[in-house]
Design a protein around this nucleic acid. Structure first.
Lengths: 335, 335
DNA sequence: TTGTAGGCGTTATCAA
DNA sequence: TTGATAACGCCTACAA
């Protein structure tokens, strides 16, 4: 149905080869130039990218694979990735794998089959060394937000350990001695790192950790809700809680509201990630803020670099710094 | 680099045609079957979807185009669209156009060039009859959440008018006489419809509308913030406010928090869309809830139907009902 | 059941 | 500068 180069050739009386060359920036006589332009307009010709991709082995598109489309942290990063990609002439195919490790593999394959020129992924796991296998095939690939043990790959993430360290230290220096943490699941490295920061700062301040103050959630709203309730139900509850991702922060706040807990008087809270939510909550929430724009930028630039063939200092690992945004949800017990 | 059918043919000693047939479900001898399977595994052969698409003129992928990736309402719908698409063997290419009407056109073209089998779009505008033109080319296409004037296309959206009607009626029956509305911009039909509901219910209750109570925002957080402040700064401020989308609802709440307005005692509020936020806010927010799962489902099923060639009752318009979720942010002045 | 051959819409080489 | 022609990897009659 759609017009092809062949049609344009017929229309102009020129050959297919000439049209093709012109389309791709080659030189043709001025009069042919306008002839072709006219034909293209008249026929509404558009290059068939599929056919072109078949020939050139380049699709000028990058696959982006994230755990969940309904997670605004992820989609914001994607949006920033795309900003720089598009400026470099690349487009994006975005998929999510609904936090399902099997689907992750499937979607990854989908992208590979679509012949994308590279893949940026926020990975969950590496079933049977799958990613390692893929990397051997030299498809450019960048991990974002998380790394996978034993997989050598460019990785952009955040200094989770010190993010936690600073947040909890802030609580400690405000006089808090019993600090709860709502941590994420074991299979995600960010959870581990964030927990480590919590542990390390306790060590550095020679504070013993009460294991009952460490609650493990699933990084979703529901589990934040449950964990916070568990913390409040302790015989000896904490005076402050640090929640290690956005969704769980939401859940935690719901629990607080429901139980009518006065923040920060009855409980101090530090949450994670979302600037909007920080201001929507009352009192405004002190949060750890991740540099999402930067994460996206660096990720995009890294994959572009690799696609160009620049394998300088591969595999690279970029650790971006977080920021602790101070608001009003933490009580100063020393003051 | 990657193995092709040719390689499999060589490896097995069979012909390309036989391999192809087997791959596509044709019959081959049992012994050849295992021979081919072995080869496929050994060579790690995967069909090149690009080449296949070129031949079959089908890519088994649907393009999805939304205004903004950072908008959780949109991405949630997409997630639901994908759920049903994937079950039908279709994959998804997701793009956003950053609320930029020119980019919208560009991205749409990108999808067309990728030879997607259909496009689901949350549209903004139709520059120069662009969409109408596209529709003539018979590419299956469905609009979601919004329609475009004078463009005949399957459309799935929400009964915005009655959504507003019911929300505002709820306020009226609680004794509110001065009800502010924070409405969206003129170029989006949902804004218009939601405003209409506000107007109609006033008419039906023979209440005169004070134009100063109608504030026009941009559907973003910032404008919700500004508009709510404007409403509060009126000489004769409203006793209740209805905010017509999620982002503006966030902004409005920020303003309320900042000014320490007691909800619902000093001001009643009805917001839009997000179940999580409704519970994160205190007191919990009464909101209009859109059926995002259903929207996604219907949209996906519609495009699948059209792709199959079923043009029954085209163009269809499905209006889904919203729900008013009652929480604690509205004061009953009659009580 | 299997294989031969032509074509999908491009690009790229090499003559003309 | 232009054009004929052979790929790219796959599918599909049609013939064997």
């Amino acid at each position: 149905m759609a017009a092809t180069i062949k049609d344009v050739a017929k229309y102009t009386g020129l050959s297919i080869a000439t049209i093709s060359k012109y389309i791709n920036g080659g030189n043709v006589l001025e009069k042919n130039k306008i002839l072709i332009d006219d034909a293209i307009k008249a026929l509404d010709f558009k290059v068939n990218e599929i056919a072109r991709g078949l020939k050139t082995n380049k699709t000028m598109t990058i696959g982006v694979l994230i755990p969940d489309l309904k997670n605004i942290f992820f989609t914001t990063i994607v949006s920033n990735i795309e900003n720089v990609l598009i400026q470099n002439g690349y487009s994006t195919i975005l998929c999510d794998y609904k936090n399902d490790i099997a689907l992750e593999k499937e979607k990854f394959n989908f992208l590979v089959n679509k012949q994308v020129d590279g893949i940026i992924i926020i990975p969950q796991g590496d079933i049977g060394g799958y990613f390692r296998e893929q990397l051997k095939k030299n498809i450019p690939m960048v991990f974002v937000d998380r790394y996978i043990e034993d997989v050598e790959c460019d990785t952009i993430l955040v200094d989770n350990l010190n993010a936690s360290y600073n947040a909890v230290e802030y609580l400690i220096t405000r006089g808090h001695k019993r600090i709860g943490i709502i941590r994420g699941p074991d299979n995600i490295c960010t959870s581990i790192e964030r927990l480590k920061g919590y542990i390390r700062v306790h060590e550095d301040y020679s504070m013993k950790i009460d294991e009952s103050l460490i609650k493990k959630g699933d990084n979703d709203v529901e589990s934040g809700y449950i964990c916070l309730n568990q913390l409040l139900d302790l015989n000896f509850p904490p005076t402050a809680v640090y929640v290690t991702n956005y969704e769980m922060t939401l859940g935690a706040i719901m629990a607080l509201n429901e139980r009518n807990v006065k923040v920060p008087d009855e409980l101090s809270v530090i949450g994670f990630d979302n600037l909007h939510i920080a201001r929507v909550v009352k009192p405004s929430l002190t949060i750890v803020v991740q540099p999402m724009e930067q994460i996206g930028e660096v990720a995009a630039n890294t994959i572009l670099k690799r696609i160009k063939g620049d394998m300088n200092n591969y595999p690279s690992m970029v650790r971006l710094k977080t920021e602790l945004m101070i608001n009003q949800s933490v009580k100063d017990l020393c003051g």
